[in-house]
Design a binder for these strands. Sequence first.
DNA 1: CGACGCTGAGACAACGTTGACTGGGCGAGA
DNA 2: TCTCGCCCAGTCAACGTTGTCTCAGCGTCG
Lengths: 351, 351
Amino acid sequence: MTQGEAPPRTPRSRPTMREVAALAGVAIKTVSRVFNGVPTVDPAIVARVREAADKLGYRPNLTASSLRRGDGRTATIGMLVEDAANPFSAALTRTVENVARERGSLVLVGSLDEDPARERELAQALIDRRVDGLVIVPAGRDHSYLISEQRSGTCMVFVDREPSLLDADAVVSDNRQGAITAVDHLLKAGHRRIAYLGDRATISTAAQRFDGYRHALEVAHIAYDDELVHHTGASEEAAIDATRHVLALPDPPTALFTSQNLVTIGAVRALRALGRQHSVAHVGFDDFPLADILSPGISVIAQNIEQVGKTAAEMLFRRLDGDESAATTITVPTRLIERGSGEIRAGGHHD
Amino acid sequence: MTQGEAPPRTPRSRPTMREVAALAGVAIKTVSRVFNGVPTVDPAIVARVREAADKLGYRPNLTASSLRRGDGRTATIGMLVEDAANPFSAALTRTVENVARERGSLVLVGSLDEDPARERELAQALIDRRVDGLVIVPAGRDHSYLISEQRSGTCMVFVDREPSLLDADAVVSDNRQGAITAVDHLLKAGHRRIAYLGDRATISTAAQRFDGYRHALEVAHIAYDDELVHHTGASEEAAIDATRHVLALPDPPTALFTSQNLVTIGAVRALRALGRQHSVAHVGFDDFPLADILSPGISVIAQNIEQVGKTAAEMLFRRLDGDESAATTITVPTRLIERGSGEIRAGGHHD
DNA sequence: CGACGCTGAGACAACGTTGACTGGGCGAGA
DNA sequence: TCTCGCCCAGTCAACGTTGTCTCAGCGTCG
């Protein structure tokens, strides 16, 4: 099998309006009118054009169309998330996609892996493709590079974390209040030594949750103890180590507050490995699948991801529709889900 | 606040090469050369152009570029999955994105929700945006509508399920062999009555897994019993019902083979609700997070999603690079992960 | 019967960019 | 000194589409 044999290996490239027009015996502009649903075309000609288009397998070229069109819209929005594979990002992507679909738009996704350089690169790549707008879960702490894009008319909404050095819309969860709720819940169960295990404090959401933790302790007149606090980064292994470490202290915590998904799961693993899952109370930030099926079930502060994503996408499209009002940050409340682990009382077992 | 106040609300539209050229005092083509890294430009002019571009916040318009360019490539590929939010699709998307990124491409995603009409619509939407290629986890059973697109030069690779009525590349997991392995494993543990709970049999992967189940039983000379088989669809609730139902039979199964993720989780829930999780053996198809942390841990047939996604993306890019060889289907092996639930012996408890 | 308005279709240019070609300046070799 | 060729930047047209304008045909009304 060398190369010669394929006989009807057709033109190799996509048919254009010109070819459809030629086949239908009309002007190219008429084909354009047909595909844009302009009503002032003779039905007989519409039929002829459609037939010719079908025969050729013609599909309009939206990139050419958007280039020529007045508004230059591409009916495509960009979405930058931490990692398309993680459940939080995936759920967010899906809700944004749903809103976009209603508006006839598609979504270009990119994963940042918490790398600010990647954020810049991918944001540029999206802008170079002239997406109509951007939904960003930012990795970096300096978004001034987007100022000129914003001025050039690219709409953008930040999600989960607010923009820095840039004035733009944002939709975030109430991280601080969520953390306060979690810690209050543990305090109510009688705990006085509550450990904090969380992501790196440079990540703004982690910082807010940590702030909530400190605030709740302060209100309860409990002295802050550095030994009970570990900013581990988002990794199960590190969380396992940190959990083991705090539980091995001379005066160990009776309760854990873990402020991020993977940290929560690491803590769950460590507690089970130590056989302490029924004696150490535990509330995690972020819900996760099967949290209810473990024993004890893991109590969590759940974010309303659907509402966050939906709100963000709707904000973006409102901007695209011409809303010029001042940039806002919308805060979406979290809620506590009691499943057992957070209800273990100090100095005793859960029922 | 009516409308008049914003003072330097600049041009509102993006600067073009023309404007950069004007500011730098060169021809538009020279700007083009600079941004394309053509070496035959005086370094002093390069610097002047770059400076002008920076001052204006110029970013090249890739859609215009790809329109004019010979190959018409958009450096964008399309990816259609079942649901961007589910872990399988999300993991797949991410591996494809990784390969695409190396090639300077971005990924447009769309969720099909098992709806063939949506598959068509979204495939068309992607093609209308002139993606360079398509990675599809198909929802429908008739892909002939893609024949003309394929002939027009759009490359496509099917993932997880093979194309029907279309000759195209595919990358799939070895569903049948995986199911055989699962059932064999249960047979080895002494089980003779093994229930099958799975997705609708119209879904090809489900059909293949069911086929593996039947084959393994046949080889073991175990009569097929219709009562032990439920094609529930991919829903936890339905799986819970089906599990309860088979376990309530006069001659109930001693082991379950669940052929899909949500079905597996439903079965897990049902077994726990009945307190039977330590007496009924269980192997699921598809791994899921925290399967190891349950007790017993859930034994599964794990797909190698990363390899599937990577292989598919690489195939696609090989086609884009001009590979014209005949369409192939690549089968990626699965592997059994023993965690406890699948090792429960017939008529007894696991160690 | 002629001017007028309306309907429906084509001609032309332009969106932002790049491929193909042109042309001026300059150094080298005859 | 003249010519040839090279280097570098510019001109022009085109990618596939649509906005704007034009124009032919036809029915209407004074």
